[in-house]
């Protein structure tokens, strides 16, 4: 049982879900991430804030392995995963959503979710069609109910509204048994009602599921997070509780000052 293994590892390393050690990512001469150190406890809810180009999404890509890091180490649940490919990190309990929905447009909503559930279990290469009582299929149906997509489950993804696609994006990230989820601007483009729904979904996640959320909507970000990391120019600029960050003079200057410069 890999779950118990991971749990022992977790306990032996002080229960960190994620540890980044001097992580850098260069794109040619551009330094997108510079010497980032960060640790997130198991079950912790963390918001990552910062202006465009601060390196937030690059940080996510470094954690999931979508793009390899230039230097530094990434540890997930106490295990060094720096050299592991993306899918191996996912199988260890990491999930993510994308800023621009990355879904399977040619498949139905249920098939999308089914694959997400199947991705972290056995039988990925099965040549048999899933049976009605297939555990991944049942899990997929439950997930779709949770994100209120069960009435469109047989529709193709291309037919969904933008908001529904964002909901499906979240359902995919909740599939299997996630322990740390990276949400990349989940509220972008959502209506106020949909935002409320999103906050509800995030707040109702079981306590053992931690997440890191990139969000420009401060309302959403500060409501769902326990700690906040501010990024600026590829570096960690400040870290603290939502109140501390809100009231920090440097943060205010950075945000308001910059707005003033450009405006």
């Amino acid at each position: 049982m890999p779950g118990t293994d991971a749990l022992t590892r977790l306990q032996s390393t002080g229960q960190f879900a994620l540890e980044l050690e001097a992580v850098s990512r260069h794109f040619g001469a551009l330094v997108a991430l510079a010497d980032v150190n960060m640790s997130v406890k198991a079950g912790e809810r963390r918001a990552v804030l910062g202006s465009n180009g601060a390196g937030k999404t690059t940080l996510f890509n470094a954690i999931t392995g979508d793009f390899p890091t230039t230097t530094g180490r990434v540890r997930l649940f106490g295990e060094d995963v720096t050299d592991l490919p993306s899918h191996e990190r996912i199988r260890r309990g990491l999930r993510r959503t994308y800023q621009i929905s990355l879904l399977f447009n040619g498949l139905t909503v249920l098939d999308n979710t089914y694959l997400a559930c199947r991705g972290v279990t056995r039988g990925r290469f099965s040549l048999r069609r899933p049976k009605r009582d297939d555990s991944s299929l049942e899990l997929a149906e439950t997930l779709l109910q949770a994100v209120h997509l069960d009435d469109v489950k047989d529709k193709q993804v291309a037919e969904l509204s933008y908001g529904q696609q964002r909901q499906l994006e979240i359902a995919l990230a909740l599939s299997g048994a996630p322990r740390l989820i990276l949400f990349d601007e989940p509220a972008a483009g959502l209506s106020p009602t949909e935002r409320t729904l999103l906050v509800e979904i995030l707040q109702s996640l079981p306590a053992h599921i931690g997440f890191i959320i990139i969000e420009h909507d401060m309302d959403v970000a500060l409501k769902v997070s326990e700690r906040v990391t501010m990024m600026h120019n590829g570096r960690i600029f400040k870290e603290g509780t939502p109140e501390e960050i809100e009231n920090d003079s440097e943060v205010q200057e950075l945000y308001l000052g910059q707005g003033g410069d450009h405006g």
């Binding site: 999930r95 399977f104 694959l115």
Partner: peptide, 12 residues
């Protein structure tokens, strides 16, 4: 449809 997303779902 989307190889990158499949990697992010645990598929090789």
């Amino acid at each position: 449809d989307n190889p990158r997303r499949m990697r992010a779902l645990g598929f090789n």
